[in-house]
Computed example of a mutant assay.
Amino acid sequence: MFTGIIENLGIISQLKEEGGNLHITVKSSISQELQIDQSVAHNGVCLTVINIEGELYTVTAIEETLNKTNLGSLLKGEEVNIERAMKLGDRLDGHIVQGHVDQTAICKNITEKDGSWVFTFEYDPTLNNVTIEKGSITVNGVSLTVLNSKIKEFSVAIIPYTYQNTTFKSLSIGDRVNLEFDVIGKYVKRLNDLRG
């Protein structure tokens, strides 16, 4: 379980394919604090630490994860948003995030507005995920508030601190991002669908 508050930016040090899996080695200032078997979210995807060597640690993404997220398009030297699992009893500063990506979206527009930025994303509405105005959404692991909720599109406002301390600073129009929709909203939608 995560909060969507990014703890650190990691740098992709090595990418190694093995069968349908991808071993991702990340350089991070928190590497030495990690433990084998610990869960760490990378751009919002929960992965298990399998090796630690100094300031480097390695996680593995399986084929299904690579097909459903943007991790398969990572490049050596690229930054990723990192968050360790939350501790029970800590403040929940973001929202409840599972680290299970529901689908991806494409960045359609970026507008600078009064010292902040508004990013607009378009996603496939046939997968039955929904956003609501002022509801929560996780974009590449970052807990955000939805603006301009539409059938297949929404926007988020990014303050300067978030912009500088996450991968939003390198996000461009046309880039693919990971989305995790609000878990409470998913249960409400499912119950409503069952009522028919």
Score class of each variant (00 low, 15 high):
I50D: 10
E53H: 13
G54R: 03
E55F: 02
L56C: 13
T58Q: 15
A61R: 02
E64F: 07
K68I: 12
L71H: 01
G72V: 06
L74N: 02
K76C: 06
G77A: 08
E79D: 05
E79W: 03
V80D: 02
R84C: 11
K87M: 14
L88V: 15
G89S: 14
G89Y: 09
D90Y: 13
R91S: 15
D93I: 00
D93C: 02
V97F: 10
V101K: 05
D102R: 10
Q103V: 06
Q103H: 01
Q103N: 11
I106K: 14
K108R: 15
K113Y: 01
K113L: 12
D114S: 13
G115Y: 09
S116L: 05
W117M: 01
V118W: 01
T120D: 02
F121R: 08
Y123F: 15
D124P: 09
N129S: 01
I132M: 07
S136Q: 10
T138G: 04
T138S: 14
V139F: 00
L144D: 05
T145C: 08
L147E: 12
K152R: 13
E153F: 06
E153Q: 15
S155G: 12
V156T: 05
V156S: 04
A157L: 08
I159K: 04
P160M: 12
Y161M: 05
T162Q: 06
N165F: 12
T166F: 07
T167Q: 03
F168I: 04
L171V: 07
L171Y: 03
S172D: 13
D175Y: 07
V177L: 09
L179P: 02
L179F: 12
V183N: 09
I184D: 00
Y187Q: 09
K189D: 15
R190T: 12
L191F: 15
